[in-house]
Nucleic acid binder design. Structure first.
Length: 886
DNA sequence: AGACGCACGTA
DNA sequence: CGTACGTGCGTCTT
């Protein structure tokens, strides 16, 4: 660390760090209500605040580039020429960032014709001369050359700006094997893609370092170029101009004329008024708190305001409790009423080794060993309704289950809470949540080390943080989202956990037989395909397929994608029409067979010793509220083709169970659309008992329901389903392979009869534009920052997502509600709920329970929502999943 | 090894 | 130029 006796000068490359932050943080998640992107500002400030806290610089400056042009581009026009246009979402953030820095009392610097790194180089050099401990923060590798006694480089790692690696001289030597001042020589030889500086061909870091060690410097290497043998030696001699040019360009200027020197950069006090104003405009709540905390500390008034949570350094001292002491502690907590405790289960492998418990003021660690029975108090508390706050409650529930412990009283889950606040984010680790929501660091053990040199945080500390994150999140959830959390998501945790633990029986022999048959088909078809084109290629390689189709067979070009032209099934079907060739059909057959084999393999390898497959449900994985399934994904088991359905026939009731039962909602999304739009025609369609598409078709084509032809029905069906996805006339015409004009006409006719549907869909988007989010029937929100984007693609994507979200999300809510009431009703039964597939549930039925289960499932699914149209539930039973379909 | 794009399975 | 997912492969890049 830095010498406390010396002043510390911190100089930061504003542009490169802000740019890194821009790409490290999701651009969609940081947008103000009026559409201003703030992710780069947020990431940069967050990093800077950490630096202020950790490094306590006495002097500070942030340097910016004025433009992408400098003396270097004048010397070499292609310098940084490979850089693509700066994204517009980034450009607007820089002035705001400078404003925020100003409010924080941070000096910003820039200089015409020079890059920010040159300013850094100048200040670092002078600072070191004047007796400062200098810290240089830059995302540009060229800054390595600045490292020397008194100058340390902080360089962001690949993960963005959240972690800075410290390079002093020893660290540079360790990482690169050379002295810091030799680094530019290495870079000159190797080249720097990001600056569009091409190096010597075939010379990488290894070779460059080897030469430098041998000859000492680039000049000496070039002087002795004749002594270097082989292709690289020749390349060096041929291309030495490149190295010379690169070296000239990557030398940082250390004597830029600046209006200030290091001594002028003394930290100024934070202007709290101004900081509040700027951060308010940027809608940075957490960052504001963190800055104000620093401001308070620097003023020397350490008393936290009453509303503040305890600061990071006041994590209560961890006590390890067992036996009587533990029982007393739990008793004391329970006596204080319904105050929730943070809970963290510690596991090693699959076994439970301890517990962390925390209240706002106390942290407790409880060691646990398998089979110990002296923890009655803890066991009782876990299984009681006493409120517990967890992170990732489902996996904790399962871990406890494995140790023979029951968990009840899940009153908050920070994973679910964070997801309901921002459903677009993937679940975060606890460490990330601590950092993102509290701005603090949680120690994490290095998983790559068998004996970690840095210890992870204690489960007790983790439990305390969980409590604080939960409070943070709870304070930000609106009433609707809180209702979804309390009434749907939290109660669903044990239901899903139990389904995962139960698993579904899969018949390995059925799968093996299928694989054998498919692999034979694949081989035969491949051989025939090779015969057609006169050579053997990898049929799974889109690249090789493109060569065959468009070069060798000279077929017309299909729609293009990033790697050339598409070879997907739709494109191949088009080709078959325009340019029939036996190869095309054989290729499709091969794709079919191999795809099915893959799916079978993923299921088969997941079968456990008891013959069951246990998927894992991702409860916080989708933006709309749906549940996802993985490892293996049991929500995409084939059903549409005959051979695909044979995979479903491998899913059977477990021994001791009578049959499988499937129950699904028919046309639930259309029904929700009818309800939400209040369209009289559509509501009548569902109440009439007539086939939906026939009813709608009759209205649109002005014929009797009996006279709706299959073609008409197909068109109407595609139109109806497309509605909820924001389908365009163009898309509809492509799907139905009809003229755009006909598709347009179909849409016009449709809306002439069902106008309220169109009005509703329009209104959803309009309202979302105003509110910034959409809401499901039950109050689940999804934010849409891009609805007002100036980027058309972004905006139109957001519009379609916005009109779909209440529909898909409400359907998800309804099935989840049904699962909860079904699960509650099944408490006394032996039958088990096994799978959820978005609008379908699969059960295995214990002997004698079929009638009861059927009627209860029908009643609970049918009654899961009170809509203006009935919820139709289809139920089927059979000896396997395929046979149980209807 | 890890990231990315393509292609394709489901609702 | 149709929403929401997960997986496996090929390919290019650490």
């Amino acid at each position: 660390m830095t010498d406390p006796a010396k002043p510390t000068l911190l100089v930061v490359d504003g542009h490169s760090l802000a740019f890194r932050a821009f790409y490290a943080l999701p651009v969609d998640s940081f947008v103000t209500r009026d559409g201003q992107h703030t992710n780069a500002i947020h990431g940069f400030l967050s990093m800077l605040i950490l630096l202020l806290q950790n490094e306590k610089p006495t002097h500070l400056a942030v340097a910016f580039d004025i433009s992408r042009f400098s003396f270097r581009t004048r010397e070499y026009a292609e310098y940084k020429g490979t850089r693509s246009e700066t994204p517009p979402e980034f450009v607007g953030q820089v002035p705001l960032l400078e404003e925020a820095l100003q409010a924080m009392g941070v000096q910003t610097l820039s200089k015409e014709d020079f890059e920010a790194d040159d300013i850094l180089a100048t200040l670092a050099t002078r600072g070191a001369e004047e007796g400062f401990d200098v810290l240089v923060v830059s995302g540009d590798r060229d800054a390595i050359q600045l490292v020397r006694p008194g100058v340390t480089l902080l360089y962001p790692n690949a993960r963005g700006v959240s972690e800075l690696k410290r390079y002093d001289r020893d660290a540079v030597v360790e990482r690169y094997g050379i002295e810091p001042e030799q680094y530019p020589d290495v870079a000159a030889l190797v080249g720097e893609t990001s600056d569009n500086l091409i190096g010597i061909d075939k010379v990488g870091e290894k070779t460059a370092v080897k030469w430098l060690k041998q000859f000492g410097s680039l000049d000496e290497i070039l002087a002795h170029a004749d002594e270097i043998t082989g292709v690289v030696g020749q390349n060096l001699r041929d291309q030495k101009d490149r190295a010379v040019r690169n070296r000239k360009l990557n030398r940082l200027v250390t004597d830029v004329e600046l209006p200030v020197g290091p001594l002028d950069l003394e930290r100024k006090p934070i202007d709290e008024q101004a900081v509040r104003a700027v951060f308010d405009r940027l809608q940075f709540k957490t960052l504001l708190e963190r800055v104000l905390k620093i401001a308070a500390a620097e003023r020397g008034d350490s008393a936290p305001s009453a509303a503040d949570a305890p600061p990071a350094d006041s994590i209560p001292v961890i006590r390890t409790l067992v036996d009587e002491e533990l029982a007393q502690w739990i008793k004391k907590q329970s006596a204080s009423g319904t105050t929730p405790l943070g809970l963290r289960v510690e596991t090693h492998g699959s076994s439970v080794t301890g517990f962390g418990l925390a209240s706002a003021t106390e942290t407790v660690y409880v060691p646990w060993a398998e089979g110990r029975m002296d923890y009655v108090a803890l066991e009782t508390w876990l299984a009681s309704d006493a409120p517990k706050y967890l992170q990732g409650a489902k996996s904790q529930y399962k871990a406890l289950h494995g140790a023979g412990l029951r968990l009840e009283g899940i009153a908050f889950d920070t994973t679910l809470g964070a997801w309901l606040l921002k459903p677009g984010l993937k679940p975060e680790s606890l460490e990330t949540q601590v950092y993102d929501y509290l701005g603090e660091r949680l120690a994490v053990a290095d998983p790559s080390q068998l004996v970690p040199e840095n210890e992870g945080a204690s489960p007790a500390t983790e439990a305390w943080y969980i409590l604080r994150i939960a409070e943070y999140l709870a304070g930000r959830l609106d009433a609707g989202s809180r209702g979804v959390l309390d009434d749907i998501e939290l109660p669903l945790v044990p239901v899903l956990a139990t389904m995962e633990l139960t698993g579904i029986t899969v018949n390995h022999d059925v799968l093996s037989a299928l694989t054998a048959q498919l692999s034979e088909t694949a081989a035969t078809v491949a051989a025939a395909a090779f015969a057609e084109i006169g050579r053997e290629i990898n049929l799974g390689s889109p690249k090789q397929l493109q060569e065959v189709l468009f070069d060798q067979l000279e077929m017309p070009k299909t729609r293009s994608n990033k790697t050339g032209f598409s070879t997907d099934a739709a494109s191949l079907a088009d080709l078959q029409e325009q340019n029939p060739h036996p190869f095309l059909d054989l290729l499709l057959q091969h794709r079919d067979a191999t795809k099915l084999m893959q799916i079978i393999a993923s299921i088969d390898k997941a079968i456990d010793k008891t013959g069951r497959v246990h998927t894992t449900y991702e409860q916080a994985g989708s933006s709309t509220g749906r549940i996802a399934s993985n490892d293996p994904n049991l929500q995409n088991v084939p059903v549409k083709t005959e051979i695909g359905r044979r995979i479903r026939s491998a899913f059977e009731p477990s021994p001791g169970f009578e049959t499988l039962l499937t129950a699904d909602y028919s046309q639930i999304e259309m029904r929700i659309m009818a309800h939400l739009s209040g369209d009289a025609g559509l509501i009548e369609a569902f109440n009439s008992g007539e086939d939906l598409h026939r009813f709608v078709g009759a209205r649109i084509f002005s014929v009797a329901p009996a006279d709706v032809t299959p073609t008409m029905r197909t068109k109407v069906k595609a139109m109806s389903y497309g509605l909820a996805y924001g389908l365009s006339a163009f898309g509809l015409s492509k799907q139905l392979r009809i003229e755009t004009s006909e598709a347009k006409e179909l849409m016009t006719d449709y809306f002439a009869r069902f106008g309220a549907v169109r009005d509703y869909l329009r209104n959803v988007v309009e309202q979302a534009k105003v509110d910034g989010y959409t809401t499901t029937i039950f109050g689940r929100r999804r934010p849409f920052p891009d609805l007002n984007s100036s980027n058309r693609v972004l905006r139109e994507n957001a519009q379609r997502q916005a009109l779909n979200s209440p529909i898909q999300g409400s359907a998800a809510d309804i099935l989840k509600r049904a699962m909860l009431s079904i699960s509650a009703d099944m408490a006394g039964m032996q039958s088990r709920m096994l799978l959820q597939v978005h609008d379908e549930l699969v059960f295995e039925v214990a002997p004698g329970e079929l009638d009861d289960l059927t009627s209860l499932v029908r009643a609970r699914m049918g009654g899961a929502a009170d809509l203006d149209v009935p919820l139709d539930v289809q139920i089927g039973t059979g000896p396997n999943w395929d046979a149980a379909a209807h």
